[in-house]
Amino acid sequence: MRITAIKSHVLQYDLDEELGYSQQYYAKRTAHLVEVETDEGITGWGECFGGGAVAFANKTIVERVIAPLVVGMDPRDREVIWHKVYNLLRDHGQKGMPIQALSGVDIALWDIAGKACDCPVYQLMGGAFRERIPVYGYGMMLQRKNDLARRFAEESVKIRDAGFGAMKMKIGLGPKADIELVEAVRDAIGDDTGLMVDANHAYTTREAVSLGRALEKLDVAWFEEPVAPEDRQGYRDLCEALDLNIAGGEAEFTRWGFRDLVGGRCVDILQPEVCGLGGITEYLKVLALAQAHFVPVVNHVWGSAVAVGTNLHLLAALPDFPGGAHPVQPMLEYDTTPNRFREELLQEPLRISEQVKASGGSVALPTKAGLGVDPDPDFIRHFEVN
C-alpha cells in the first residue's frame, strides 16, 4: 500500500454570536481536516489543531512541506513517517504549527491502518478498557455582554439538564469578575454537578494563587491553564500552593516538550491535545511519560467531529489509573457551543449529545473500522475555503 495524495481542507462559517476566551474573541468557526489517499482505495482522515489564520498556515505546511516528503511511502509505516518528517523539520519547528500539521497527517494514517485491518483504532492500541466513556460538557465561553453572569448561569443549567454530570467554563476577565462568574454557575447548578474552569493562561502565578483559593471554596475540580505554558515554575508553585487540581498541557508538543512538564510535576492533571502535539503516534509516548510519573490524563478536545471521534478511541484504550476495583474513569471533553462541524460533518454522526441525554452522561465506544469519522464530501465542498 502506498500514499498517493495528501489533501488539506479548511472549513469555515460565520457564527451567529461571537465567542471568546481570555486571549481573543472570534466570529467564525474553523476546522482543518487532513485527507490521506492510498493506491488501494483506503482513505484516512485526521484533524489539525488551530483555527482562524493558523489553519491556513497549517494547510500550507501539510500540502507543500509534509506531503512531498511522504507521498509514495507505505501509510502503515507510521513511526518511520513521523520521524522522517520531524527530523527534516527539526531545524524549523520543534513546536507549534509544523507539529500541528504533522498531527493531522498522523491521525489519518492511524485511520487507514484501522480500515486496512478492519478493526477500530483502539484495538490497534491494545484494546478497550471500558465499554462506555463518561462525558463532561464544555461551554460558557466569554462574550462581550453586560449580563455574562446571567448567561453563564442559564447555559450551565442547560448543560446539566442535558445529562452532563460535570462541565467546564471559561474565565480570564480578572480575578474579581471570574469569581462572580463561577459563583453564578455554582449557584445555578448546585453542589452535585462537577465544575472546572479554564483561564487560557490569563494570569501571573501570584494572581492565580489568590484566585485559586477562591475557586477551592466553590468546589472547583480543576483550574486549567492558569498561567502561560512556558511558566514551568509558576505551574509548580501553583501545584504546591493550592489544594485544587492544576491542569494543563494543551499548548505543549511532542514527548520532549512534555518530558519537563510531566517530570517536573508541573500539573496534577495532564491535558494532551492529540491534534496538536504530534498525532496518535506521539500521544502514546506522552501517555507513557504521564503514567511513568503517575500523572492522571484527561485529554484536551477541541475541533470537529473528527477530533471528537479520535479521542473516543484514545479514551477507550486509556488504562485505568492507577487501577483498582472502582477506578476513576477518564472523561471525554465535549464542546456544547454551536458547531456545525461537530454535528453535521460526518456521513454517520457520532450523536454524542443524544447518547449523553439517554444514558445520563456517557457514550458508547465506536465500532466501525478505523476512526469511524468519514466526512460527508458534499458538506466539505460547501464549507471549504481557500
Rank of each mutant, 00 (worst) to 15 (best):
P68N: 08
V267M: 09
W302V: 12
Y25P: 00
S359R: 14
V54E: 14
I42T: 15
P175I: 06
P375F: 10
H9E: 06
V10A: 09
R213L: 13
M125F: 15
W222L: 11
E18C: 01
D178V: 09
R2A: 10
Y21G: 01
Y203F: 14
I6E: 01
P375H: 12
G372P: 05
V36S: 05
V54N: 06
G104V: 12
R236A: 15
A369E: 11
G303R: 00
K158R: 15
V34Q: 02
Q24H: 14
V54H: 05
Y138N: 06
K285E: 15
Y86T: 10
S8A: 13
R236E: 13
L15Y: 03
P272F: 11
D374M: 02
A241H: 05
Y235C: 05
V295Q: 01
G324L: 11
P68F: 09
D14N: 09
V363C: 06
A188R: 04
V298N: 11
N386W: 00
S22I: 07
K170E: 14
M196I: 07
K145T: 13
I179R: 04
E224G: 09
T337C: 10
L88M: 10
V80G: 15
N200Y: 07
E252K: 03
P327K: 05
K59Q: 15
G174I: 05
G278Y: 01
